[in-house]
Nucleic acid binder design. Structure first.
Length: 154
DNA sequence: GCCAACGTTGGC
DNA sequence: GCCAACGTTGGC
């Protein structure tokens, strides 16, 4: 079992958009970064737990968590010329980009702010608070995941 | 709106 | 293979 964090801009896709999706499930499409792609394609497994973070938002918060309900498969938005994420170098025969399906498990009653994460010494090694971090999908340790959950209950 | 950090592109 | 230029991310 592994743990992850995904970022989403709430103006584009918020945790409420996920809550309102059929089966509260969505495909995590549009990732166009190779390191994040590798996580989606190779490492995220059924049942892995995924923190849901609002970036470019006010407030900046971890909003809840999801579970991986479908493992890496080709991101079809890359094949669609009308998609904002269209990439002609990716083909169904030889896809460049991948996605997983995520199902909402819990929307926090008390979201955990970036500020609180930064102030918690137990979380100082989280990739989220690393300077210049721009990855939109990255691994989180089990203890960090549990600590965020604990803070959301506090 | 600004800008630091980072990834990608393309000329050489 | 190097690296300058450029585009994007994302916190402030």
């Amino acid at each position: 079992m592994n743990y992850w964090l995904v970022k989403s801009e709430p103006d584009v896709f918020s945790i409420d958009d996920l809550a309102n999706s059929p089966q509260q499930t969505t495909c995590w499409d549009g990732v166009r970064n190779y390191q994040a792609r590798n996580f989606l394609r190779d490492s995220m497994k059924m049942g892995d737990k995924v923190l849901f973070y609002h970036s470019n938002a006010d407030p900046l918060c971890v909003m809840g968590w999801c579970e991986v309900v479908k493992e890496g498969y080709p991101d079809t938005t890359a094949f669609d010329p009308d998609s904002k994420h269209y990439d002609p170098t990716s083909t169904p025969e030889k896809p460049t980009w991948f996605m997983v399906d995520l199902k909402l498990k819990e929307k926090f009653k008390r979201p955990v702010t970036l500020q609180e994460v930064k102030e918690n010494p137990l979380l100082e090694d989280m990739i989220l608070v690393r300077k210049g971090n721009r990855l939109s999908v990255f691994p989180v340790s089990e203890s960090h995941f549990q600590e965020i959950l604990k803070m959301s209950k506090g």
